[in-house]
């Protein structure tokens, strides 16, 4: 029966000012029930102030085999981090 129900990915904003974070998924017949179910399954202890549900089928994911081409180029660009540059102490806080 629930097999006919689509899978929804659940995102919760833990506190005001924070991003919604993916917490898990669940089956529900529609978005409204998905939110109600997400409330019961993922926020029983005040874990959230806001819920997003997204049909899992609507998510496009990068494939594990693309990991190299996608992410390796960043490895060699260490100068993107502030710690790459040595600033003399006399200069003060920067």
């Amino acid at each position: 029966m629930s097999g006919k129900w689509p899978l929804w990915e659940v995102f919760i904003r833990g506190q005001h000012g924070l991003n919604h974070r993916h917490v898990g998924s669940l089956h529900a017949p529609d978005a409204e029930m998905a939110i109600l179910n997400a409330r019961d399954v993922y926020t029983r202890r005040n874990e959230g102030v806001s819920i997003w549900v997204v049909p899992s089928a609507q998510i496009t994911a990068s494939s594990p085999s693309e990991k190299g081409p996608l992410f390796e180029p960043a490895n060699s660009k260490v100068y993107r981090h502030p710690t790459f540059f040595d600033i003399p102490e006399e200069v003060g806080h920067m």
Binding site: M1, S2, G3, L7, G24, S25, L26, H27, D40, V41, R44
Partner: peptide
């Protein structure tokens, strides 16, 4: 007892990512 229902659901979700359906 409600927590245990939640535990079951978290785990069924995890199992489903392996290509088996909840049903």
């Amino acid at each position: 007892v409600q927590d245990e229902a939640g535990h079951g659901l978290y785990l069924y979700c995890a199992a489903e990512t392996l290509g088996v359906s909840r049903d």
